[in-house]
């Protein structure tokens, strides 16, 4: 399997990258980790005329808490996330999720930004970011803009990142007190795309009443999906078994999975229900 020919450029600054993207026009693609793009090019499902490799641009890879946010540079590798002391200590959901993304070699190259910017509901970070209420920073020659993760995904492989723009940072409200997170996906074998995946964040007050909840679903909807009714069912509740069951049931009802090799629509809904229930409980156990 061999890609079609293309021209390749490897700018050293963001500004140079913008210039190249402008010059090459719509036929250019950004090469980040490349572990979604290059396989598609090998199969000739994608045949960009120009590749702009942003791996040499410094300052796009970091994981830090700053100004009330966890900030993840778009070029941060999945493996960096897995090995970050900060993530291990506070952001358990990423530990759950990264372990299930493809395999170790792919995680050495695959980037968090790319996982989101690819615009694929089968990827795992979109749901995680939804659960965490992330914002995405998009840069262009005219400056930076911030888009809520809820307004980021437009359609299959299309996102808020317009041609000539580059996703540069993901910002997540720093996890505060009494907050738990968890992610799991059912997969046919390790490294597979999700049959159904569920990301959960819950926060409670001192009395145990849920004050905030985020639930994102992987690969059970044309776009990454926020399970709004499920979140609403939790907020204000005491997170009893019934509350959780209700939230899980809503998630199952509100997603729109399709029949495929991973299972029927009905099966996937049922799995969304089970995993949502389990991930809410797991998140609670981590509070």
């Amino acid at each position: 399997m061999i890609p079609e020919g293309f021209s390749y450029a490897v700018p050293n600054t963001l500004d140079d990258a913008f210039t190249l993207l402008k010059e090459f026009g719509e036929d250019a693609k950004i090469l980040a980790g490349g572990h979604s793009l290059i396989p598609m090019m090998k199969l000739r499902f994608a045949s960009p005329t120009h590749l702009v490799d942003i791996n040499n641009i410094p300052g796009l890879s970091y994981i830090k808490e700053e100004g009330g946010y966890l900030k993840i540079g778009a070029m941060t590798r999945e493996a960096d996330l897995e090995e970050s002391a900060l993530i291990k200590k506070k952001y358990h959901i990423f530990m759950d999720a990264t372990k299930l993304i493809a395999d170790p070699q792919v995680r050495n190259f695959g980037t968090v930004g790319g996982n989101i910017a690819h615009g694929d509901a089968a990827n795992d970070h979109p749901a995680v970011m939804m659960a965490l209420g992330a914002e995405v920073e998009i840069s262009s020659p005219s400056g930076k803009r911030t888009v809520s993760i809820d307004e980021f995904f437009f359609g299959f492989y299309t996102t808020a990142v317009q041609h000539g723009e580059i996703l540069t940072e993901i910002r997540i409200p720093a996890i505060g007190e009494r907050t738990g997170t968890a992610y799991h996906k059912l997969e046919r074998k390790v490294g597979d795309y999700a049959t159904a995946g569920v990301a959960v964040m819950v926060q409670t007050d001192a009395s145990g009443v849920c004050t905030k909840a985020g639930i994102g679903l992987t690969n059970v909807n044309p776009l990454p999906l926020r399970a709004k009714r499920s979140e609403e069912a939790l907020v204000g509740s005491r997170l009893t078994e019934e509350d959780i069951a209700k939230a899980a049931q809503f998630a199952a009802e509100d997603c729109n999975p399709t029949d495929d090799l991973r299972g029927s629509e009905e099966f996937k809904r049922d799995m969304v229900r089970v995993i949502t229930k389990r991930m809410i409980n797991k998140a609670i156990s981590r509070i």
Partner: peptide, 16 residues
């Protein structure tokens, strides 16, 4: 054929 690659023809890894 619906699963003609190693993405969908599921050869077990050391985990399975």
């Amino acid at each position: 054929i619906l699963n003609g690659t190693f993405m969908d023809y599921l050869v077990p890894t050391a985990v399975e």
